[in-house]
Amino acid sequence: MSYPTLYNTVKNSRFLYGLLKPVANWYTNIAGYRQLGMRYDDIIAEESTTVEEALRRIPQHEYDQRTLRIRQAYQLSTRNELLPREKWTKPEDDTRYLYPYVEQVAFEEAERKAFDAAKVIRK
């Protein structure tokens, strides 16, 4: 699930951040999920054991709200409609409620792999 990222480099450099942030905002808008009332973590591909386990770990109320958002988006998309502008997901509401758990599970999986391949050296 984890992939190489320059996120921290960009975030820490004022120049790169100023340069790339508008592009990022534009990209997020064009992606169109906010217009359907969804959050970014709602569109992480669910069909993997990692994300399935992460979904099991999120608090119940987050899970319920996620289900509602996905249902609403599905309804809208079948009717080929968008939400009225005032109901779009606001950038400050677009929180990463799932990703920390995905990372946690991915870390555990990597750890398991590492242990399965471990060579034991006794001091």
Binding site: F107, E108, E111, R112, F115, A118, V120
Partner: peptide, 12 residues
């Protein structure tokens, strides 16, 4: 340490 690590290290 995760549960997994605690268990595996103890086992090792």
């Amino acid at each position: 340490k995760t549960t997994f690590k605690l268990t595996r290290q103890a086992e090792l």
